[in-house]
Amino acid sequence: MIEVSGLTKRFGDKVIAVQDLSFSAKAGEIYGLLGPNGAGKTTTLRMLATLLKPSSGSLKVAGYDVTTHPEDVRRNIGVVNGGMGLYDRLTGREILEYFAYFYGIGKIDAQKRIKQLEGALEMTDLLDRRSSEYSTGMKQKIVIARAVLHEPAVLILDEATNGLDVVARRAVLEFARAYRSKDRVVLFSTHIMAEAEELCERAAIIDHGRLVAQDSVANLKTQSSANNLEEAFFRLTRSVN
């Protein structure tokens, strides 16, 4: 589903945000992209989402190359990032309809899908209010609904639990778990190791733009003789640095 090989991203001559990064995530799994702030996670995800062009290396999403088939890639991904990115003066329903249009979802189908998501994400009675009136938790539900409107094969969650309370955070993690299926993959990027340990089967740890380790979460802990993923993360990144 996601194949990253020798991926490098330079900004100008001095900054190398991502260097020779390789990992792959298969359908049916929740894959963790872990690293501290500034490790290069967001840059990697932006390249995956066709927002940034790789300086070198190859990147395939759902079988499409991001540089040669960017629009096909965008049809097959849904993105939830840390910032809410909602339009304050539109209602939740209008926001969802606005984005549904770009995915070629007709009005009637869009209404059906929104109804479906309304139930799945418990958004009843709130969709027709302007998003400026929403709580942070409700905003995040709209953001998730927007990302999965077109039922993408790849769901990218980039620091998706940032700033959420316990209940909203739990809802995001549960939705990610429920979204995974035999023909879908969830890419979960975070700096919170406890969340990754709870959710991901496999993970790549990156630091300073380089891959430090890539394996199942259980193996990462065993490799570093750690009791939990956070400890494993510290040991693995320290041994490299």
Binding site: R46, N81, L86
Partner: peptide
């Protein structure tokens, strides 16, 4: 500033 531009550019619109 709102972060919505990034989301818009990720959808299938050029």
């Amino acid at each position: 500033e709102r972060g919505s531009l990034e989301i818009l550019l990720v959808s299938p619109i050029t």
